[in-house]
């Protein structure tokens, strides 16, 4: 399947959403007239993952596929279906390439309409690649970053349609949006 086909599928599904009423149906599953979307949710093990789990009410009424870096973590939180991606950081070029490949395969297979990440670097990679297949992308910077956006968050900026900090001051200083925090 070529990239253009994937993009088309994403766009068409996006049009189906128009006109669906949302505000009355919060917390009650998928509103009538709304087609379920495919949501790819990715976070590294540890605090990033915990924060993603605290945001599940935002997307679990859709078809969600989870990616994380630590074996057993997704199962512990009943986050199904899920798969592992290799962890990586800026100092490990080979690990980054490996993660890119694994994430690209997942993206092409799952064809998400929306990708959401709370960090860290594997999440940035996923946002970058997700833009190539026309998905809408969300970055929620970790609440650990109370004084400036994380390095990953700064990298993610250009590839995030919704770019959030969980700190009002940080959001104001960096041009991000603030909508609330999990802590």
């Amino acid at each position: 399947m070529g990239l253009s086909q994937i993009d088309l599928a994403g766009s068409q599904a996006g049009h189906d959403m128009l006109g669906a009423s949302r505000s009355d149906n919060r917390g009650k599953g998928v509103p009538k007239n709304m087609t379920k979307k495919r949501i790819l949710a990715i976070a590294s093990g540890g605090g990033h993952w915990q924060q993603l789990m605290l945001l599940r009410d935002a997307f679990q009424h859709h078809d969600v596929f989870y990616l994380t870096t630590l074996p057993g973590l997704a199962a512990q939180f009943d986050a199904n279906p899920s798969a592992l991606v290799p962890d990586c950081n800026r100092d490990e070029k080979l690990a980054i390439l490996h993660a890119c490949w694994v994430i690209a395969v997942r993206l092409v297979r799952f064809r998400p309409h929306v990708v959401i990440s709370t960090g860290a670097l594997p999440g940035v990679i996923t946002l970058v690649l997700a833009k190539l297949i026309g998905a809408r992308t969300i970055w929620v910077d970790s609440v650990a970053n109370a004084e400036e956006m994380s390095m990953s968050g700064k990298l993610a900026r250009r590839f995030a349609d919704l770019w959030l900090s969980q700190w009002e001051d940080v959001a104001a200083a960096e041009g991000a949006e603030f909508a609330g925090a999990v802590l």
Partner: peptide, 11 residues
């Protein structure tokens, strides 16, 4: 508030 903002964007 954060969850609602994300949900609105996703939906």
């Amino acid at each position: 508030a954060l969850v609602n903002r994300l949900r609105d964007f996703i939906d």
